Lab assay of single mutants.
Amino acid sequence: QVALSRTQVCGILREELFQGDAFHQSDTHIFIIMGASGDLAKKKIYPTIWWLFRDGLLPENTFIVGYARSRLTVADIRKQSEPFFKATPEEKLKLEDFFARNSYVAGQYDDAASYQRLNSHMNALHLGSQANRLFYLALPPTVYEAVTKNIHESCMSQIGWNRIIVEKPFGRDLQSSDRLSNHISSLFREDQIYRIDHYLGKEMVQNLMVLRFANRIFGPIWNRDNIACVILTFKEPFGTEGRGGYFDEFGIIRDVMQNHLLQMLCLVAMEKPASTNSDDVRDEKVKVLKCISEVQANNVVLGQYVGNPDGEGEATKGYLDDPTVPRGSTTATFAAVVLYVENERWDGVPFILRCGKALNERKAEVRLQFHDVAGDIFHQQCKRNELVIRVQPNEAVYTKMMTKKPGMFFNPEESELDLTYGNRYKNVKLPDAYERLILDVFCGSQMHFVRSDELREAWRIFTPLLHQIELEKPKPIPYIYGSRGPTEADELMKRVGFQYEGTYKWVNPHKL
Rank of each mutant, 00 (worst) to 15 (best):
255 D>Y: 12
255 D>E: 15
257 M>E: 00
257 M>Y: 01
258 Q>L: 15
258 Q>C: 15
259 N>D: 14
259 N>M: 14
260 H>E: 15
261 L>V: 05
261 L>Q: 03
262 L>Q: 03
262 L>V: 11
262 L>N: 01
263 Q>L: 08
264 M>A: 10
266 C>H: 00
268 V>L: 08
269 A>E: 02
269 A>C: 11
270 M>F: 05
271 E>M: 03
274 A>V: 07
275 S>I: 04
276 T>G: 09
277 N>P: 03
280 D>G: 04
280 D>A: 14
280 D>C: 08
282 R>D: 03
283 D>Y: 04
287 K>M: 05
287 K>G: 13
288 V>G: 01
289 L>E: 00
290 K>D: 03
291 C>Q: 04
292 I>V: 13
292 I>F: 01
296 Q>W: 07
297 A>G: 11
302 L>Y: 03
306 V>H: 08
307 G>E: 06
307 G>S: 07
307 G>M: 07
308 N>A: 13
309 P>Q: 07
311 G>S: 14
312 E>I: 05
315 A>T: 07
315 A>Y: 10
315 A>M: 15
317 K>F: 09
320 L>G: 14
322 D>M: 08
323 P>M: 09
323 P>W: 07
325 V>T: 10
327 R>F: 13
328 G>E: 07
328 G>F: 08
329 S>W: 00
332 A>R: 02
332 A>H: 02
333 T>L: 01
333 T>Q: 02
335 A>I: 02
335 A>C: 06
336 A>P: 01
338 V>G: 04
338 V>K: 13
339 L>C: 15
340 Y>D: 02
340 Y>I: 03
342 E>Q: 13
343 N>G: 05
344 E>W: 06
344 E>Q: 07
345 R>V: 09
347 D>C: 12
349 V>R: 00
349 V>T: 03
349 V>C: 06
351 F>M: 04
352 I>G: 02
352 I>P: 02
354 R>W: 07
356 G>N: 00
356 G>S: 00
358 A>N: 01
359 L>D: 02
362 R>L: 08
364 A>W: 10
364 A>H: 11
366 V>Y: 04
366 V>C: 09
372 D>P: 09
372 D>M: 05
374 A>Q: 13
375 G>L: 13
376 D>V: 06
379 H>C: 11
380 Q>Y: 14
380 Q>N: 06
381 Q>R: 08
385 N>T: 13
385 N>Y: 02
387 L>R: 01
387 L>F: 06
387 L>W: 04
388 V>A: 10
389 I>N: 00
389 I>K: 01
390 R>D: 15
391 V>K: 13
392 Q>K: 13
393 P>D: 09
393 P>Q: 06
394 N>Y: 13
396 A>W: 15
396 A>K: 13
397 V>P: 07
397 V>G: 04
401 M>G: 03
401 M>A: 09
403 T>D: 05
404 K>F: 14
406 P>C: 15
407 G>I: 09
408 M>L: 06
409 F>K: 14
410 F>Y: 08
410 F>C: 06
410 F>M: 05
411 N>E: 10
412 P>V: 10
413 E>Y: 14
414 E>T: 14
415 S>L: 15
415 S>I: 12
417 L>M: 05
417 L>I: 13
418 D>R: 06
418 D>Q: 08
418 D>H: 12
423 N>W: 08
423 N>F: 09
425 Y>R: 14
427 N>V: 12
432 D>W: 05
432 D>Y: 07
433 A>Q: 15
437 L>V: 15
438 I>N: 00
441 V>Y: 01
442 F>W: 11
442 F>P: 00
443 C>L: 06
444 G>Y: 00
444 G>S: 06
449 F>R: 01
449 F>V: 08
455 L>Y: 03
456 R>H: 13
456 R>V: 08
457 E>Y: 04
459 W>S: 13
463 T>E: 14
464 P>V: 06
465 L>I: 13
465 L>K: 02
466 L>Y: 15
466 L>P: 01
466 L>W: 05
467 H>E: 09
467 H>A: 09
468 Q>N: 07
468 Q>M: 05
470 E>V: 05
471 L>D: 08
471 L>H: 10
474 P>C: 09
475 K>M: 09
476 P>N: 03
480 I>F: 13
482 G>N: 06
482 G>Y: 02
483 S>K: 05
484 R>S: 14
485 G>P: 03
485 G>T: 00
486 P>T: 03
487 T>W: 08
489 A>K: 01
489 A>D: 03
489 A>I: 08
493 M>T: 07
494 K>F: 12
495 R>F: 07
497 G>M: 15
497 G>N: 12
497 G>A: 11
498 F>S: 14
498 F>P: 14
499 Q>K: 12
504 Y>P: 13
505 K>R: 05
509 P>F: 14
509 P>C: 10
